[in-house]
Design a protein around this nucleic acid. Structure first.
Lengths: 352, 352
DNA sequence: AAAAATAACGTAAGCGCTTGCAATCACAAT
DNA sequence: ATTGTGATTGCAAGCGCTTACGTTATTTTT
């Protein structure tokens, strides 16, 4: 039988109120009693019942993690996993737990009917990804539910957001192609224009091009998958006969693009350089190893959790935007030689 | 303000008991009253407060998903993600939610002190992965907490488990190397012997070899990562000079092995064939495209959730073992030509 | 030494929901 | 007219915890 406050109270010869105060570190408990109660609680392996505590305090100590449900796709992206680990670690540190849910288009109609929100199972939510509709987010905002956005941003409302520094990352990799490899006829493969990360990465690309007076050449895709990257490459080859290099909005797209190149007998990087963004697990294993921009999703997860908990615990005001720095991962798809590359990073760990 | 039973009761002119009965589909409510209450509840967007309901019923309608925390590794394995999606989908269908937690060695000491368990935040848990210690699982068992294992199994106690059919999968891919490519000097790269999937896959390999009277050659690794696969390949090359092929216990290991081959100037598959197990996202993109065995982690997730809910809702007896079939994915690392391969499967989707 | 402040603890009223039991009512059976 | 039956509903006691408030014992202040 699970011990309750009552069990402990009886054993210690005090009231449950005193036990509650002790266990919650409230003032007004005699040091001796405190010791005694604490010892008994420890011995009995007491842990508070979350439902009861939640009912009494209207706090669940639970963070909702809401992601978009891109159902049957075989994802080649390490991010949900990594982000979750980050969130979980930080959450645990503060006594929080995470409850995950995937939402699809239908469920985005009414945010308050998303079970974990409507049933008050969370103290706040982390919203991951650009696919989450603005209307959905605004509903949360006007319901005063604390939330932080990841890889998304809303102009309409002052809200918290954690993002990687897309502009800088994209700038640095474009700049690398220009400065280190003297490439100037560069195309950018962008996702939908209403995806923030696409817009920002495009911006970084344009900034770098602008510096040297090169012309921007953007190919828009309706999604950012291998398929769309593959198709975008064909489009680019047609539109830009003098194409020297491609900055893809993410790694998956880059892989698709490279495949199209190979199909056309173009060598990467010799005929055309292709670089990505994300540094997914097998970027170093690809042929050629993909030059890309590393994002620490784990760090993003950590910061998102920390921020959300701050909102909840200390009622910190919203409107906080954190940019997590990126790191240029130079490999061979840009034209660099393997010697420039550090050996350790070339073989990611893997399990199961 | 969130509506409560009381709000609705007042508006409908009945007691909260009646409202509760209506909303929970209990018998003994007049059809008219029922209609009226239902309408009001719908209009007000009523959703029950999870904490209150949980306190009253000792049911949380929450499933715990417990995974092993292999902290800083960059995973190259699509499974946590995919499994979770499966679990979430099935859970939602039954009105359940999922709360995720990663446990490390320290937390495995005492299962009942894992917060989501000790604080009674779940009605049952799904335990994922072979790293979860037996003692940990047994503690759950003796505490009468419903659970189901994924990719793990316990002999000591009759418990539920969902696994893929490792023996058959491993047999089929080994058999393919033997029958289609006439390879007989085959090594198996195994993970730790106390990992079930390693043992079983080894078994399938041995079965296939046994049929043709070939000799089993197993290389044991302390983990199943690219690094260990890489090292295992060097060991194999040394121990088995006549080596014709390698069946790796998973894809990551296979990638490592192939890298070692390339380093040694050995061509895959011409000099030595290498195959994996898992069909991770970029197996088709690898050079050469990896022949492997597909596991549907999503299906495993779905079945695990379904089974656990059955245990909880209908108090179904434990001791249920489900094997999810696998599928041989023939690509080029075994020696087959690209023509044998279906085009569609060759390009996985990817996002962000 | 009396009054006032303080410390330590208990009492009890919730938090929003479920559910056993009793109450009420309409109707049928005697 | 009396009793029984079943259908419908309300009452109220929890579920395990928090917390405002009251009570008592102990100091401190004057």
């Amino acid at each position: 039988m699970k011990p309750s406050l009552e069990t402990i109270a009886e054993k210690a010869g005090v009231s449950i109120a005193t036990v509650s105060r002790t266990l919650n570190d409230r003032a007004g408990v005699n040091a001796d009693t405190r010791e005694r109660v604490l010892a008994i609680a420890r011995d009995m392996g007491y842990m508070p019942n979350a439902a009861a505590k939640g009912l009494a305090t209207s706090r669940t100590y639970t963070l909702g993690l809401i992601m978009y449900d891109r159902a049957p796709q075989q994802p080649i992206c390490n991010f949900p996993d990594e982000t979750m680990l980050g969130v979980d670690h930080e959450a645990r540190e503060h006594g929080y737990h995470i409850i995950t849910t995937f939402v699809n288009q239908g469920m985005m109609q009414d945010a308050l009917r998303v079970p974990i929100i409507g049933q008050q199972r969370t103290d706040g939510v982390i919203l991951v990804g650009p696919e989450l509709k603005a209307s959905f987010i605004i509903q949360l905002h006007s319901s005063n539910i604390p939330f932080v956005l990841v890889d998304n941003l809303l102009n309409e409302t002052r809200s918290d957001a954690i993002l990687c520094d897309n502009v800088a990352g994209s700038y640095s990799i474009t700049r690398h192609l220009i400065a280190a490899h003297d490439l100037h006829n560069l195309a950018f493969f962008s996702g939908p224009a209403d995806w923030l990360s696409s817009r920002e990465r495009c911006q970084g690309y344009e900034n770098a091009l602008g510096e040297v007076g090169a012309e921007a050449r953007v190919v828009y895709m309706e999604d950012t998958t291998m398929q769309t990257g593959y198709r975008a490459m064909y489009e680019a080859l047609e539109r830009f006969p003098d194409l020297e290099g491609v900055i893809a909005v993410n790694d998956a797209t880059a892989f698709g693009a490279i495949r199209a190149c190979k199909e056309q007998g173009l060598r990467v990087p010799d005929d055309v350089a292709v670089v990505g963004f994300d540094n997914v697990g097998w970027a170093p294993l690809h042929d050629p190893p993909l030059t890309t921009v590393r994002i620490s999703w784990r760090e993003i997860g950590i910061q998102a959790a920390r921020r959300l908990i701050d909102r909840i615990d200390r009622d910190a005001p919203a409107s906080f935007q954190l940019r997590i720095g990126t790191e240029l991962m130079v490999r061979q798809s840009c034209g660099c030689s393997p010697d420039d590359q550090d050996e350790a990073g070339s073989m990611p760990a893997a399990s199961r």
